[in-house]
């Protein structure tokens, strides 16, 4: 992105907030459920941790509603690590977001991994000082989140599966939609904005820059160093790894390997070396085998 766009992509996004996302680029953000796991993630080279009560694979396994984590848990993780701490609020749950801001988390993830609190509206993120990252499975969704004040986007993928195919699909979709905008005549961008259900000014900016105006990570199904390197080669700014690390046989080893593969994504010799002897990856679920109502990526609108 061009630096001038860091100024104010959406109403709530400030230079310090979009800027923090720039500092995370080329890095791995890891889901952790305890201070001990947060320490392992930091020790492995994570650029940030996502504090939550259950990783997506366990949310799937246990079923029921998933909500914001206990403040004690989040506080415990903030007190344990020196890297940025993110935490999840339910889609549309602006009071959970207020609580997370009060706890001084560094980023709030308004996340489809939790059960939505509002099936129509997302949080008005422009009302907050703390930055937000939001999921998107296509360009229109990403632009609506940015309009609401998101400072960072992550493609959704399908969390808790270890199946990278949805992450690939969503990143390819967003990239293809951006490429299409860049080839359009200026007078076609009005209809494009209508179709994307996003503001024309933002659509025009994306068409001119050839990319989203905020840092874009990939999430949902990344489980191996090769998965992470593939997402980086496809143009991701960085990766979120959820269940993939702490649901595997050797979390510390796998976390380190994914960090190295994310930086040296274009060097197969490094990706090969770090992939050796990592033990069992998370067991995983085929997204195709998930009945539709259990697909988290369909939450968010």
């Amino acid at each position: 992105m061009t630096p001038e766009n860091t100024q104010s992509p959406g109403q709530g996004a400030t230079t310090v907030n979009t800027g923090l996302a720039h500092m995370l680029k080329g890095g791995v953000i890891m889901d952790v459920v305890t201070p001990d796991q947060a320490k392992i993630a930091e020790e492995a080279g994570a650029v940030a941790v996502m504090a939550l009560e259950r990783v997506p694979a366990d949310i799937r396994a246990t079923g029921g509603l998933a909500r914001m984590s206990d403040p004690d848990l989040i506080q415990g993780i903030i007190d344990t690590v020196s890297i940025p701490v993110m935490a999840k609020a339910r889609i549309g749950h602006f009071v959970e977001a207020q609580v997370l801001e009060h706890l001084k988390v560094d980023y709030i993830d308004e996340s489809e991994v939790l059960s939505p609190a509002d099936y129509v509206n997302h949080v008005d993120k422009s009302k907050f000082s703390v930055p937000f990252v939001c999921g998107a499975s296509n360009l229109g969704e990403a632009l609506r989140r940015i309009t609401e004040g998101a400072s960072m986007i992550r493609s959704k993928g399908e969390a808790g599966t270890g199946d990278v195919s949805e992450a690939v699909k969503h990143l390819r979709t967003i990239n293809a939609e951006i490429a299409r905008l860049t080839s359009m005549a200026e007078d076609e961008l009005y209809v494009a904005a209508k179709e994307l259900q996003a503001p024309h000014a933002l659509v025009k900016q994306v068409a001119a820059d050839g990319r989203l105006p905020v840092v874009t990570f990939v999430a949902g199904g990344v489980a191996t160093p090769a998965d992470a390197a593939m997402m980086m080669q496809m143009g991701a700014d960085g990766v979120f790894v959820g269940s993939g690390i702490f649901k595997s046989g050797d979390p510390a080893g796998r976390a380190k390997a994914i960090v190295q593969a994310t930086t040296h994504y274009d060097d197969p010799s490094v990706v090969t070396e770090v992939s050796r002897g990592l033990g069992e990856a998370m067991v995983g679920l085929n997204v195709a085998d998930l009945p539709e109502p259990h697909r988290l990526a369909e939450r968010g609108w």
Partner: peptide, 13 residues
């Protein structure tokens, strides 16, 4: 800028 902890680890090998 970035995370100094991450960069130190990435540089180590």
């Amino acid at each position: 800028g970035g995370e100094s902890t991450t960069m130190a680890r990435l540089a180590a090998p």
